[in-house]
């Protein structure tokens, strides 16, 4: 009986979480289409997310591309196909690693930042103060963060992909002694339209997940400053897992629609 009670409580709590997460998402998205829109806040968040994350995304991209090139050497040399390094780097970085690693880096940097910022605002009663002064905190705080993240993560992913290709190119040319021309033509020929769609669609979904999870977890913070710490960890872990799960489903969708897109 006791086990049943614990289980039923857990199920009810999960359903409530999904319900309030969905409700918050719907309200945040609906706010985009009605006034007032906090343009200043959106631009500020775009600067924080975009410009602020450029260095870590660039470094992640560069070393991922370089590592892919180094790692591929052993496998490709066995088949005498070292010349195909460009293709391998392009496909892995642009299809998968660029979008996912950029998203995971931003889940750590931005997701944690959003959760701790909003969590601190909750525990110091700033959210209540905002409501008392007639402002909808979802419109002012959640919508701009989601919009900024959804707009900036695709841009950062493109930067990550491009620098990843450059990282692979440096290894290919200086370590594997492949000609620059061969690397780039091989890489570009390997890519299909569906790969480019994927590298742009995935970050939009990931960006939404990261910002939404950060906002949801931040706004549900309880338990003072200790609670803010817990929320920050929860936001990063939840967003990272959700990104990886979403990536699985998006890959399936993209593979399903790829023949249509590449026609």
């Amino acid at each position: 009986m006791r086990v049943f009670n614990v289980l039923s409580r857990a199920v009810v709590s999960s359903i409530q979480t999904i319900q309030s997460y969905t409700l918050l998402s719907v309200r945040a998205v609906a706010n985009i289409f009605s006034r007032p829109v906090y343009w200043r806040e959106i631009v500020l968040q775009m600067d924080r997310i975009g410009v602020g994350s450029l260095t870590i995304v660039a470094l992640t991209g560069f070393f991922t591309g370089a590592v892919m090139a180094i790692q591929s050497e052993g496998a490709l040399r066995r088949y005498g196909a070292v010349g195909m390094t460009g293709q391998l780097v392009a496909l892995t970085v642009i299809r998968e690693l660029g979008p996912v690693l950029s998203a995971l880096m931003l889940a750590g940097r931005i997701g944690a930042g959003i959760a701790s910022e909003l969590g601190s605002m909750v525990v110091s009663e700033q959210i209540n103060a905002m409501r008392a002064l007639g402002t909808d905190p979802i419109r002012r705080l959640v919508t701009p963060r989601i919009l900024a993240m959804v707009l900036m993560l695709p841009v950062l992913t493109i930067v990550c992909d491009a620098i990843g290709m450059v990282g692979g190119w440096i290894i290919a040319v200086y370590k594997l002694l492949i000609s620059s021309n061969q690397y780039w033509s091989d890489a570009l020929n390997a890519l299909q339209f569906s790969d480019l769609v994927g590298t742009l669609v995935k970050p939009v979904v990931f960006g939404f997940i990261i910002a939404m999870t950060g906002c949801y977890v931040g706004l549900s913070t309880t338990g003072g400053t200790e609670g803010v710490g817990r929320s920050t960890t929860r936001a990063v872990v939840s967003a990272s897992i959700m990104v990886i799960v979403a990536d699985f489903f998006l890959n399936n969708l993209l593979i399903y629609f790829a023949p249509l897109m590449n026609r």
Partner: peptide
């Protein structure tokens, strides 16, 4: 609802425990 409360809240000022100023 939250929208309707805006006009009610306009008549009321609230001083929070620690000030609750926007950082």
């Amino acid at each position: 609802g939250e929208e309707e409360m805006v006009s009610v809240r306009r008549q009321i000022g609230m001083v929070f425990q620690e000030g609750a100023l926007f950082d």
